[in-house]
Amino acid sequence: MMLSCKETSRLLSQGQDRELAFGERVALRVHLAICNGCRNVSAQFQFLRAAVIKLSDDGSKENSA
């Protein structure tokens, strides 16, 4: 199965919310190997998660200070 970028962005997001099936992981890996744009989006989705955690941490620090 050849993924489009649109399907890839959807799977990248779902990968943060559920365990992807083996076939999905393979298809994702194949697509990411050849697609710069989707590799960037993958990194950005991961960064978003870290950023919200950082925002939460800073918020609680300010509240307790």
């Binding site: 489009s4 970028c5 649109k6 399907e7 697609c35 989006v41 990194a43 960064f47």
Partner: peptide, 15 residues
């Protein structure tokens, strides 16, 4: 954001 085949109209850049 995507063309008819589901590819990026404009590929996202790295941050």
């Amino acid at each position: 954001l995507f063309d008819q085949r589901g590819h990026w109209e404009e590929a996202p850049d790295a941050w």
